[in-house]
Design a protein around this nucleic acid. Structure first.
Lengths: 216, 216, 216, 216
DNA sequence: CATGAATGAGTGTTCATTCAT
DNA sequence: TATGAATGAACACTCATTCAT
């Protein structure tokens, strides 16, 4: 029985399944919200039967939690590391972080998470707390750290970093939500890249020290 | 005023009912989301019986639509009028509009709407479209109009107003959502007034023409 | 409306419902056991819909508990009172109590309870404890009291009443179970009255003082 | 002893399996009842996998039947033989049979069977019939035979043996059920040996000819 | 108009049974 | 033989909706 090196179709499945299911669930939840999603739909999307779900997740709620975690956690570490290494100017740093952000918005998958959190936070206090601390909080702290570093280097105007951080994050959140929620119902589209350029323009202008305006 | 025999209190009641119900529904929906809210809870909050709801709204979905409309429509006209009359500088105008916004965030009631829309847009295309057009869209157009006016007057740097508008709105959205969704699960609070001050500082700096830097 | 004395079909229902449901449930449980009974069957027997059950009982388990209690409690008080009043000989007393028992066996309804308890005790510790204390225990204590009284009056041979009581109860339990469980699958029937006569004969002989053996 | 290459332990295992499974099943059924027992639990107790069960039993029901049969059949033949050989007085004979019974109660295993039968008889007509005929019926017939023999020998008072038999069996059934069902939920314990002594005392007194009442 | 008892379609969850390995 | 992943029928329970009062 399977004496050779080929792994049986099945075994491999066993390991991939949880991720496949979470993926399918993210899609389904993103489309209809947590409550309105039938587990049977998730199963169908994942190409399995309803019962099989329960081999991997104890309940719909557990599945939801898994969706949130699987989607967010890896992504955050990334951003943090990027920051730690960097040596450039604040301008460069901000553009880099924000550029990375743009990338994830395009890779639509996980950009549906905020929408889910917003809709269900009150029904999943645990998840809400986790998200607040580990995602929103961490994100804010990263931005605040950049600002502080910038102020230390004299590049950034004196500001309260913990207040400025969410202000910087705001337009990004709006973009994500727009793309995920309202754009399908709008007549016009926002071009993400143009948006980000304008955003960088405005925000950097708003935040950075005026560049020694040589005489107007 | 009750010239006839009928109890006026009662009469007024009858007319107020729909609004009372919508109010109760907004509360309930804001707390648990549309799907997770039981009509019985709404009824209880409104001090009526489950059956009575159906005398005023044909279904849960109709009630939802009413909630969205009742909450938003009046508020928008207000902002628009404010704009039309205004004669001040762009700085003043923006601060005024944005200040009005701060007021509505404090009057928490309708600030829960965005959260609802975000969670349920896909399940209520009609509502989503309405909201996109009449609320989000109109809001953007107001801001864009201010910017354009500012550019015409030479107060605002040259920018694409339709791109800049959502960027200006972003931090406001974030504040609303933070207050309504995550703050209960966070260790720290954002002081709305401080936040708005910093916001004005950054955004105005980012958007307005540099004030004639005299020479360094 | 309903100004006259007739009570609306409905109101009256409301009050009778719980008992009707418990009745239907007892039948169903008696037939198939707790686990194998579908709530839908209970509903059907009670002439109501599945959902209506839940207006009166919070869960299948609650219904089960209600069945046990409704069936047993009233019956026990009766037996106890009968005892308290009595003034006859032990023979008369035992025959009376035991006769009452025969009556309840005929009125099959509640005679299915022991069967239910036996099958589900381990799954309903609460119920088991209640039954042990309030039904089995109380029954034993009644019998033991009769015996003790009999010994005090010199009518009953010296015996440990708390051991003798279950021995006296045993044949009664067997009869109930036989009638409820195995008889449908047996070729012969036990005639309950004959059985009780023989029972009285044997047990009284076994328990009472020998009738003045004329000089032995 | 393992002279060849095949592991004998393994071999023996294979043959013992059915019995082991039935054993595990008896335990599980005794604890939770037939319906509430998951086959997975049985498998776990037996130290095998869920699928393996199906190599030995075609369904849960088949397993149940096997449990009943394996538990009862051998035990009955024993009692019958004991009777056939015996030559003592009725008193001795009864005490002997009943003593054997006491032994089996102690060896708890199969004493859970009555409980199972009582709970599931209606769901397993076949089993119920088998049990009625081969266990209950046979048991009754053994006792009846003893009584008849006793009457023939003038040791037993004239009685209808087929009515007296269940009366004699009743207290034994009660003991078994008490031990298996309610005792865990009671504050007091019944000492089985004392119980049996009192039982013998009462029943023999009730059944046997009065011991030569010296001319009364 | 108002009530709340009644309904039943819908969904999460369990578990006996199957079957590819 | 043995495994355990996969299945899907079955059932408890919920809740929007109806309607007799």
């Amino acid at each position: 029985m399977a004496r050779d090196g080929t792994s049986p179709k099945w075994r491999r499945r066993k390991e991939a399944r949880p991720a496949e299911i979470v993926d399918a669930a993210l899609d389904a939840f993103a489309e209809r919200g947590f409550a309105a999603t039938r587990l049977e739909d998730v199963a169908e999307r994942a190409g399995i039967s309803k019962g099989t779900l329960y081999l991997y997740f104890r309940s719909k709620e557990e599945l939801f939690k898994a969706v949130i975690q699987q989607a967010m956690v890896p992504n955050l570490a990334l951003a943090e590391e990027r920051l730690a290494i960097s040596t450039g100017t604040t301008r460069e740093l901000l553009l880099e972080v924000v550029g990375g952000f743009l990338g994830s918005v395009a890779g639509a998958k996980l950009s549906a998470i905020p929408k889910l959190i917003i809709g269900e936070a009150n029904n999943f206090p645990e998840v809400a707390e986790f998200y607040t601390r580990e995602v929103a909080g961490r994100g804010m702290r990263i931005i605040a750290a950049i600002l502080k570093r910038g102020m230390d280097r004299g590049e950034v105007r004196p500001l309260d970093p913990s207040l400025a951080a969410p202000i910087i994050a705001g337009p990004l959140l709006l973009l994500v939500l727009w793309k995920n929620v309202l754009e399908p119902y709008a007549k016009q589209t926002i071009d993400a890249e143009e948006y980000m350029r304008t955003y960088a323009d405005i925000l950097l202008n708003g935040v950075l020290q005026r560049p020694a305006p040589k005489e107007g």
